[in-house]
Design a protein around this nucleic acid. Structure first.
Lengths: 230, 230
DNA sequence: TAGATTGTTAATCGATTAACAATC
DNA sequence: TAGATTGTTAATCGATTAACAATC
């Protein structure tokens, strides 16, 4: 029942906006309140400063010529534009191992994201504790209705469980899914946005040489031999 | 010491080529040898048929007007162009949990990818078995030299360990890295191509509404309410 | 004021889509 | 031959880069 206010910027831009938001969260901790220029942002993320300014136009913050943008203001504006809460809730679906592993690999709270529930498709995982959270059965997700305030899910279940999972998530009111499980074309529940991270494809595309990129994803590379202690 | 033969197609195209390769691997098992049209490929992956034909031009396979492409020939050509072996080796770096979890979530062998070594940055994980593979210490990677025949790595270590990991991988001769750990700007060893999957950014970009996309990544979505048994 | 950086418009570049003739 | 689908060229679209005047 959420109303789409503004017209969203193109996907490419949305992705970069969230990178600015992540970056500001990181350096905001260091130097609390100061100004930051489009050049600084650009350098930090490997973009051009024009791109940054163009992107920022979308969110409607005003910079000060000669001085740059107010960090606090910029971060707030981004958060607003992205419709993010200060500790934005999300749920995750996957086997117990990957849920536990992700807590280390992806410390979501450091990025302003808060896991609020974990679900597994494996019976053996149910009841296990991962961090502060007790793993629930996928069935309880399907029947249980809406998960408190969350519309976001990270899915890393087994390939066989993808369709069931998406159905259950849809019923639970999830509208945005980040899919880590590699599937070619899952059944797309209506009203659900899915972003795919295709591990096998990204790996295959990497083989034939450096200088690869994925969008989610920007990347850099340099030719020449690497200097090792060998 | 690999020589770059052909000029690589643009990144977007490379990514789609690897999707075709994955798809052919999947349906190749079902119906062994037959022809497939650009329309079929396009429909299966949510692309336009013109895009498919353009992409396929890059790899240099010839289709037959009125009939389509020979599936076997196409798959071989893609494999060739992507410089993939039939069971292409890769290594993975991450904590024991995520390594074990990924075996389920991402059954790499089904996609023609073969994990040949696992490394962890946590002492407690060393010696543990994940599938057939014994987890080694990250240190042994740094000192050990080249890993048999592999130049590809999937990295899902802790954020603190990213720089160390990349250095070690570089020394071990790894030239392509798929980075799951979210880091803004890691030190890039020379000659290494890194693709980033930015979990926090992708999640944040998903919040403000359906119809998101990431490149790695295509996605679809529809407006309107979803039909649930509620 | 001078210096720096923004906001904005125009130019370039690349990728996708459309159109259609060539071909099996 | 007729039908279908490829290969290829042109048109469109969007995103990035460049240029520069406006402004703090």
């Amino acid at each position: 029942m959420k109303i789409q206010g503004h017209k969203r910027a193109p996907e490419t831009v949305m992705l970069r906006l969230s990178r600015y938001h992540c970056l500001l969260g990181e350096i905001g901790g260091e130097r609390p309140s100061r100004r930051i220029t489009s050049r600084e942002l650009a350098d930090a993320l490997g973009l051009s400063e024009e791109t940054v300014r163009h992107d920022l136009k979308h969110v409607g913050v005003e910079g000060r010529p000669g001085a740059g943008y107010d960090m606090q203001e910029l971060r707030d504006a981004l958060q607003d534009y992205l419709e993010l809460g200060p500790n934005h809730p999300f749920i995750a679906v996957g086997n117990g191992d990957i849920l536990r592993g992700l807590e280390v690999t992806f410390p979501s709270r450091d990025f302003g994201l808060q896991p609020v529930a974990y679900f597994s498709d494996r019976a053996q995982d149910v009841g296990m504790r991962v961090g502060e959270i007790e793993v629930q059965s996928l069935d309880s997700l399907g029947s249980g209705g809406v998960i408190a305030g969350s519309s976001l899910a990270l899915v890393a279940c087994a390939p066989e469980a993808v369709d069931v999972t998406l159905d259950a998530l849809s019923c639970a009111g999830i509208t945005g899914v980040l899919m880590l499980t590699p599937v070619l074309r899952p059944a797309h529940p209506e009203g659900m946005g899915i972003t795919y991270f295709r591990l096998p494809c990204a790996l295959k595309a990497l083989v034939s040489g450096p200088i690869p990129v994925a969008l989610t994803a920007e990347s850099a590379a340099c030719e020449g031999p690497h200097g090792c202690s060998e």
